[in-house]
């Protein structure tokens, strides 16, 4: 209960600071405009002006909120100006990429825990890949695939998939190796086969690790899909909205695309967290 109160207070304070920042960042423009028009601005007019400019340096929260409302509820979802339409473009490649990336990641992890040569060859590279900015390959993938005629969802999905691939591999290997020695010894005394050990012990114990890396993976997938929309100057998707907004100085559009991306990310992670809770509870692991 107390934490709910403090969250509300903190969020309220953040919105308050946001409004204050809007005043201080946008006032130069407001004063310039008034000067050119030969007007004197009172404090109240100045503040109201900073909260209602068309291309403010920092749009006020209510401007972003009303833009969000306009582009989601009031537009048909098939319209090119609907943010839901753009979100779906990005979300679909995120999900396809996530699905490909996690499935391959889990398969590789299973290979790694069962094959010594694979473990020693591949694992160091999988870990090292987390220290390098592999996102930098994204523009190249888009352009290369574009030059051989592959466009649209697939190139972005590929970026999403390789971004979530490595965290899943590393997390899943850790998970599949997490059973206690005493538990593996027990199955050893039963003379269980490798497959039995996998299904009855390794896989169930790996679940908490799997969900932890899935949550990391889905965020990475979304980032990949958004960044994948930047290099070709795509016209559809949240990344495209960000890029177009920054070309034309449409700050309100940038902010609403950003908030939308945040909501998509929160929803995706939230769904996984819920799934994790239900699943682990049914398995008696919470």
């Amino acid at each position: 209960m107390r934490s709910v109160v403090s969250i509300c207070v903190v969020v309220g304070a953040l919105i308050f600071v946001w409004y204050l920042a809007a005043v201080s960042l946008n006032s130069t423009w407001a004063l310039d405009k008034a000067k050119r028009a030969g007007l004197e601005l009172g404090t109240k007019e100045l503040i109201l002006d900073t909260w209602s400019q068309e291309k403010p340096k920092l749009p006020a929260p209510h401007q972003v909120a009303s833009e969000l409302w306009k582009t989601t509820v009031e537009k048909k979802i098939t319209s090119k100006r609907s943010l839901i339409f753009h979100s779906w473009i990005t979300l679909s490649s995120t999900l396809v990429g996530f699905l490909i990336g996690t499935s391959l990641g889990i398969l590789l992890a299973i290979g790694i825990v069962h094959n010594n040569a694979m473990n020693m060859s591949v694992m160091p590279w999988a870990i090292a890949s987390q220290t390098i900015p592999i996102l930098a390959i994204a523009p190249m993938i888009i352009v290369v695939l574009n030059s051989i005629g592959v466009q649209g969802l697939l190139p972005k999905a590929i970026i999403s998939s390789y971004l979530c691939f490595f965290p899943v591999v590393v997390g899943m290997v850790k998970g599949l190796r997490s059973p206690d020695k005493i538990d593996t010894d027990l199955l050893h005394t039963y003379n269980a086969t490798n497959a039995q050990k996998f299904w009855k012990l390794r896989l169930p114990t790996s679940m908490p690790f799997l969900f932890a890396s899935l949550k990391v993976g889905i965020s990475a997938s979304l980032v990949g899909a958004i960044v994948g929309e930047l290099p070709t100057g795509a016209v559809r998707g949240l990344g495209a909205r960000l890029l177009a907004g920054s070309y034309y100085g449409q700050t309100i559009q940038i902010w609403s695309a950003l908030i939308m991306a945040a909501m998509v990310a929160a929803a995706l992670v939230g769904i996984l967290a819920l799934l994790q809770k239900v699943m682990l509870k049914r398995m008696g692991m919470t």
């Binding site: 934490s3 340096k57 949550k215 920054s246 950003l258 929160a266």
Partner: peptide
């Protein structure tokens, strides 16, 4: 402050923050 800020912070950590790049470049 911790009780209020930490849930907000873990929410923020899961977001695609690179998206703030166009704003900060501006």
């Amino acid at each position: 402050l911790r009780l209020g800020l930490m849930p907000v912070a873990s929410f923020m950590a899961a977001l695609p923050i690179v998206g703030t790049a166009p704003i900060l470049v501006m």
